[in-house]
């Protein structure tokens, strides 16, 4: 049961990152890739009908985490208090920017929300990457299963680190670049003409940075958390993960160069999913490792809810996911294809 719920939450989080990831990425690039007002509208329209649904994956994963692993939810959410609150503020700012920008036809109003959109999207990406890196590195859990981390201390990876240290900052930058790349490839799929050219060019430039950062991040993780590789050594088949990471990276640049945008975007989805799966494999069966000693690790067994809760949960979860997937198919089919440039978006 613990194994199932570990992967249920992991898969939901992957769905969140892959889906909301591209609209966060579009937000990071919006100011730079789209330079005229019609182009800005097209970039926004490319994510307009779907961003809200994408973000629901975050809420659904949060709720699932809450009931399946209450100890983890309680410990992590209070321990990362400030970072989480800042994430909430960024989510509020981003949603307001996307939805309110077009409500008033006024250059200053729109420029303001364009700025909010960029800053909130970019910082969200950094915080998400840092969050994942925090989970990999571990936190100073006490005997009662709680901890509290300030935003930063001395930037070192030690037994009493901050939320931001050299390692988690690398994680943040990897996420920033990876989601920007994801957004660029998505924009290339959804747009045409000059905007598409610029999205592809951005995708090619960012790819170099992403490739370098990915190479740095793998050994950095092993330095920050030496036992990350234990599961990999135990199950050598899992070394397929780094292989797929690199294949998907190569696929991204290959298809981007050949202007096969859907395939390039597909490779980016694989890249994000496998990077996260790789982290999950490194963690299992821990949920939140301790820097204070392995006896304080929060593990699946330790945090799992009671059996009745989980059995019932599995029944409605399967049904609910089926419904959710149906809605996603309906919405994505309805808004498939390119966002037309001339009309500044779909006609209303």
């Amino acid at each position: 049961m613990g194994f199932i719920w570990f992967w249920v939450v992991a898969v939901m989080l992957v769905a969140y990152v892959v889906l909301d990831g591209f609209d966060i990425g579009v937000g990071i690039l919006h100011l730079f890739v789209a330079q005229t007002e019609p182009q800005r509208q097209v970039t926004l329209h490319s994510i307009g009908p779907v961003w809200d649904g994408n973000e629901v994956w975050l809420l659904a994963s949060g709720g699932t985490l809450y009931f399946a692993f209450p100890l983890l939810y309680a410990s992590a959410f209070s321990g990362f208090y400030l970072a989480l609150m800042i994430v909430l503020w960024l989510l509020i700012g981003r949603a307001a920017a996307i939805e309110l920008r077009m409500k008033i036809n006024n250059g200053v109003w729109r420029a303001f929300f364009d700025g909010v959109f960029f800053i909130s999207s970019a910082l969200l990406a950094v915080f998400y990457g840092a969050a994942l890196a925090n989970v990999i590195r571990g936190v100073p859990l006490g005997a009662d299963g709680y901890f509290f981390l300030p935003l930063w201390t001395d930037w070192r990876v030690g037994p009493q680190p901050g939320i931001l240290d050299w390692y988690t900052v690398i994680g943040g930058v990897v996420a920033l670049v990876a989601l920007a790349e994801h957004g660029a490839l998505y924009l290339a799929v959804k747009t045409e003409g000059e905007l598409q050219q610029r999205a592809r060019a951005t995708g090619r430039v960012l790819w170099i940075a992403l490739f370098a950062l990915t190479i740095i991040s793998l050994p950095a993780s092993v330095i920050a958390r030496p036992d990350t590789l234990d599961n990999y050594r135990k199950y050598p088949l899992t070394f397929a993960v780094p292989v797929i990471v690199f294949l998907s990276l190569l696929g991204m640049i290959h298809f981007c160069r050949k202007a096969e945008d859907r395939k390039a975007f597909g490779c980016s989805c694989v890249y994000l999913s496998i990077m996260m799966a790789g982290a999950a494999i490194g963690l299992y069966p821990r949920l939140l490792p301790a820097t204070t000693g392995a006896q304080y690790d929060i593990t699946i067994d330790h945090a799992l809810s009671g059996p009745h809760t989980l059995h019932v949960g599995l029944a409605w979860w399967g049904f609910g996911m089926l419904l959710a997937l149906t809605y996603f198919v309906i919405v994505y089919r309805m808004f498939r294809g390119k966002v037309p440039v001339e009309s500044g978006g779909y006609e209303h």
Binding site: G62, G63, T64, P70, G313, W316, G320, A324
Partner: peptide
């Protein structure tokens, strides 16, 4: 109570 909260998200 995590259960109804998760169900709110999903349903």
């Amino acid at each position: 109570i995590g259960q109804p909260l998760a169900m709110e998200g999903v349903f």
